[in-house]
Amino acid sequence: MTTLEIPRAVIWSALAAVLGVPTLAAQRSVDIRRAVTPTASVRITGAFAELRIRGWTKDSVVITGSIPVDARFGGGFMSPTAAGSPGAKFYLETSSGIPAGKLELRVPVSARVWAKSGSATIDVEGVTGGLDLNIIGGSVHVAGNPHELTVESMDGAVSVDGSPSWVRLKTATGDIVFNGGSEDAGLTTVSGTIRVPAGRFDRARIQSVTGAVDFGGDVARGGSLDVDTHGGAIDLRLPRTIAADFDIATVAGTIENALTKRAALPGREGRGQEIGFTAGGGGARIYVRSFKANIRLLAR
């Protein structure tokens, strides 16, 4: 009686297929390099799952990484000038439409980068030009001080460690953490949380529908902080020495003031609460509005 010998690899493959264990898809590498101008515009879009963007002090763009073997990676550079190409566009299409592949994009520090994907992890460091990043899910993390920064996501988390001059962070349900200041900041969410642990702001506007807001930054003299939520709780952790004019109201919530001795007053028709006062001789303007959230002014 002969024994049928089945190779071990076949057994494992069959088991993997039966159990639904994903096998590693074949990958191919990407390696594209080109001289560009210091302020080149680079666009990358499509189904990448991971994208690392790094600013470097060389006037060239380098894209490296691995993508599924059946994926289509296209695009190219704009016609070069004497100083190099002024820009490039790339796209990645996977056969399933599911984001896959890991890419690293190196750009001149002053470049402008525009990246858009479905569900992806985007990690940026060292770009001082402009960044416009757009995802549905996943996460975006930016470290450094880009001149302009826009991040939009649906449920992807967004975190920034740095001080962009101009910044707009927008999510639907994703949480936002902005650890750094800005001359002009706009942070918006529907139901994610917005946390600003630190940073100095000339002008900041924070808006949420139901997400909680926790602001622990500083507002420049002559600057402004506007916060409005429909139902998201608001905590402002401010230095006791702050010089600002406060105008705060909640239609159906409460206000707790631990920053000064002034107590909040009942709002219109006895509903909700409001408070207005000047601290430290005034200077900055702090304007807070909510429909039904509780608002806390805390000293730090």
Binding site: T45, G46, A47, E93, T94, G97, K116, S117, G118, N134, I136, E152, M154, K170, A172, T188, V190, Q207, V209, D228, H230, R289
Partner: peptide
């Protein structure tokens, strides 16, 4: 502000990448 949120969300939804 709530209407602004709605317009903004709809705008962004209209700009999302299609399935390939």
């Amino acid at each position: 502000a709530n209407y602004e949120h709605k317009v903004e969300l709809l705008r962004r939804a209209n700009e999302l990448l299609p399935r390939t």
